[in-house]
Design a binder for these strands. Sequence first.
RNA 1: GGCGCCAUCGUCCAGCGGUCAGGACGGGGGGUUCUCAGCUCUCAAACCGGGGUUCGAUUCCCCGUGGCGCUACCA
Length: 494
Amino acid sequence: MSVRVRYAPSPTGSPHVGNVRTAIFNWLFARHEGGEFIARLEDTDRDPARYRPESIQDIETSLNSLGITPDEWWVNKEPSGYVQSERLPFYQAAAQELIDKGHAYPCFCTTERLTQMREEQQSRGVPSGYDRRCRRLSPADRERYISEGMQYTVRLAVPLEGKTTYNDLVYGEITFENKLIDDQVLLKSSGWPTYHLAVVVDDHAMGITHVIRGEDWLPSTPKQILLYQMLGYEQPKWIHAPLIVGTDKKKLGKRHGSTKFVEFIEQGYLPDALFNFLILCGWSAGDENRELFTKEEIVERFTLQGISKSAAVFDYEKLKWMNGSYIRSYSTEKLVALCMPYLVKAGTVSEPISSETTAYLAQVFPLVAERMKLLTEAPALVEFFFNDPTEYEDKGKRKWLTGEEAQNRISKAIEVFSNADGEWTIENAELATNKVVELTGSERGPIIHTLRTSITGRTVGPGLFETIAVLGKDCVVRRLHNALAAVTIVENAE
RNA sequence: GGCGCCAUCGUCCAGCGGUCAGGACGGGGGGUUCUCAGCUCUCAAACCGGGGUUCGAUUCCCCGUGGCGCUACCA
């Protein structure tokens, strides 16, 4: 049978990277096995404090931008098959079936009683869980309560004896004592299902063969296995993947900084880099000792055996390095296109983008690409290629734009560059600079630094000759004049 | 508290009874050079503790310790 896996996000917020990593694992497994990747919206929690319908957009964006668009989901199919809120009758039917078979029972306990019971159990230090009072109700009482219109939930009648064992394809054989499993609520008093019921009904309905999810779901797996057995469904294979945690080793959350996938995109991270980085959190290609992979290479190598068991600390530094690595691997054309929104937003260029600007950008970007780690850094990096410096970096001004020596260097440079004939190339820029070195009798280093500060306003940046070549003669001469005017003469240099 | 899972450099991973315990990020140092970055070379850095099993344990088993997860009419 062909592999069918799913990603089942809940619209309670924008997906965070741990969640997305699991989606990627599912996608990868489907692709590697030639199966289908499905997404299903688990929107059975209607508590206004948690329900965030607007996060559905982020779910779709995250999946699409990573290039792991599901083969089947509410976007390209009828929502009724892929959105749980449209499938209520199925869960209710399953709950009724369980009641009929004696595997579930109505529970009339109030929230107040439940809360009180839990608090008491905790204060006494005994295991918490439902005391199964309603499970012992006589059929007559049940009938009466229901006919009186009392609100009730439906609970799973967990076997009081025996064990539930399953073989996790990552964690191995895991056993739970049935008597320690809580009589889980399956149907809320509102008639909506809880996760446990809905996930089982739908995974079965959709023919899911492998459940790949975060390790935080591992302890609830026996409840679902029980449901599969009671409903007479064939169980899927279970695969739990290690959590992604913060530096404090705790499950990734708001306090760890950016954790939402879309936030990383906004900050200038590339989907390709994120994809590559994320699969390395909890998976490895084995003894290949490599970490930069194309998506195709990963699909080829992805196996469940490569999934590790221990939680992975999310290393922002390494992600940043990897992002820079991807940026450097991109063609100039691609990189310019990727950076364009940021340049427009910063006002570096304005729309519509002229073909001159595009051509200019194509010359500029090779010079700054290797210094870029985030796309958001582009505007600052290319700033001086578009605008004459209005001020000079403090350190540069003090060191290179101060005193008669500086004045002399810049004057000579103006002379040399404005009289330059022949082609305006990198080679000729260097030759011209050498000429200034000769004329001033200074050393080459200081001349270069003086010129860089004069022309770019900064002490760090791309190679000077390349910069001069791209900027063009008029621009360079103009900036040199400006710099000359900005040189400060001090009587007693400190 | 109960139940479950996990445990190799600071971090991510490799290792699947015998290795100088390997790679990457980060850190240190060198080279390239006009700065920064990049590239490149190089150094430091780890098998949680205790018992077993075995000729031999980082590796297999048990216990301890530690960390994490779950313990809702949330997923």
